[in-house]
Structures are given as C-alpha cells and as structure tokens.
C-alpha cells in the first residue's frame, strides 16, 4: 500500500506517522503538502497530529479550507482509508466526515501521558487485528480532546457501531469515554490518542502497531 501523510503548517506528528508506516509496517509513504491538489496513486491518507494553523479559531477549523481537502473528501467518499490522529481527528470532525466535535478538556489542562484504551469494535479496517475489549497502552497529548456530541448522535454512533476506542478512565470528560470514532462506512477513523507513538517496545509500547497492520490486512482482503 502507498500512504500519504498530509502536512499542514503546524503539523508536528507527521514524521512519527511516516516512520510508523515505513518502519512499522514497511509500506510506501510520502509526505504531501497541504497546497497539493491531488492524491492520485495513493491508497490511504493519514492526517497527523499537531497544531495546524496554530489552532487559530478552533482546532482544525482553518485546515478545512486548504487545497488538499477536496481530495481527502474524495478518498472518504470512495471508501478509501482516511485516518486522522489528534489534530487530524479535529480536522475530520470540522470537515463533518466524522460526527461530533473535540473541545477543551473538562479540567482545562493539557494532558500528556500514556493511557489505556479499550477496543470497542474489531470489524473495521483499523481494528481487525485486535480482540474485542482488548486493552492497549497508547500516549495522548492534547488540550482539546474532549469528544462531544448530542444524545441523538451518540445513539447513532452506538447503533452503527462507530465507536472504535474508549478510554478505560475518562481522562478529559469525553461523552461516553469516547477516544476514537469511525464514519458509518468504517473507512474513516479519527482518534485523539497517538498509535504512531506506540509501534515498538523501545517507545514504551507497541500496542499501536496492530492498528496499522489492520489496515494492511483489510486492504489484502479487499484486493482479493
């Protein structure tokens, strides 16, 4: 598979994602500038963490108007893999490719620590290598990571099995302890924790590696 890592001004986890793809799952990967207008030739697009446009206005709000965005929407519509991590998740909700919003943490503090997540749905391109209910240790680093949606949306998320990951402890005040959600079709995932920072033991955890391996497994099944 060939992945694009989209680089916005202020992205800062782009190289972590790059290494996760190149060294973690040994696939092709290229950095793509936000001013580009084509993702032709790529099989999946990854939106990294960081502070695009300095988080001005709202996290992710300005990035939504960058030239590359129409291609990310095309990928989502065509069922191709779209993964947004941290600021990437914020961008995907601002784009309405994912429901809900990410708002300031309940206690107002930036949280930077390794937390425990629980896998809530294994029937997605991003989670098929995990066991249902499996716990994983993954770092978080965010000030605006509290997942918010109204009751009706939460009901839809549950009915459509769109909740991919939950925190075992509600670190930031998220609705229903939600850490990551997919779209209805399951080809778009957004999550606040950083699986790309947990791909080998020397980093403290390799629990994130299976997320990327899941994508490969999914693509092999689709191609056959």
């Amino acid at each position: 598979m060939k992945f694009a890592v989209v680089n916005f001004p202020g992205s800062n986890c782009d190289m972590d994602l790059f290494y996760a793809i190149r060294d973690g799952i040994k696939q092709e990967v290229e950095l793509v500038d936000y001013r580009q207008t084509s993702l032709a030739g790529f099989d999946g697009v990854l939106i990294p963490g960081g502070f695009s446009y300095g988080d001005y206005l709202r996290s992710g709000a300005i990035a939504v108007h960058a030239p590359i965005i129409s291609e990310i929407i095309r990928f989502a519509d065509e069922g191709k893999i779209v993964l947004g991590i941290c600021n990437g998740f914020q961008i995907l909700t601002e784009l309405h490719l994912l429901p809900g919003a990410l708002i300031r943490n309940e206690k107002g503090r930036f949280i930077c620590e390794t937390v425990t997540l629980q896998v809530e749905n294994t029937d997605t391109p991003f989670t098929n290598q995990y066991q249902l209910g499996e716990q994983m240790r993954i770092p978080v680093a965010h000030g605006e990571g509290r997942y918010f949606c109204d009751d009706k949306t939460l009901q839809e998320l549950k009915e459509n099995k769109q909740i991919a990951f939950k925190y075992t402890e509600n670190i930031n005040g998220s609705v229903d302890r939600i850490a990551g959600v997919t779209n209805k079709q399951k080809n778009v995932l957004g999550m606040m924790p950083h699986p790309e920072r947990a791909i080998e033991d020397i980093l403290g955890s390799d629990d994130g590696l299976k997320l990327f391996q899941s994508i490969i497994n999914y693509q092999v099944r689709v191609n056959n």
Binding site: L57, A61, D150
Partner: peptide, 8 residues
C-alpha cells in the same frame, strides 16, 4: 462554514 462549529 468557518467562524462557528454548529455542533457546539
């Protein structure tokens, strides 16, 4: 489309 997020 820009100044607000209608979700919140």
């Amino acid at each position: 489309e820009l100044l607000t997020n209608p979700n919140i």
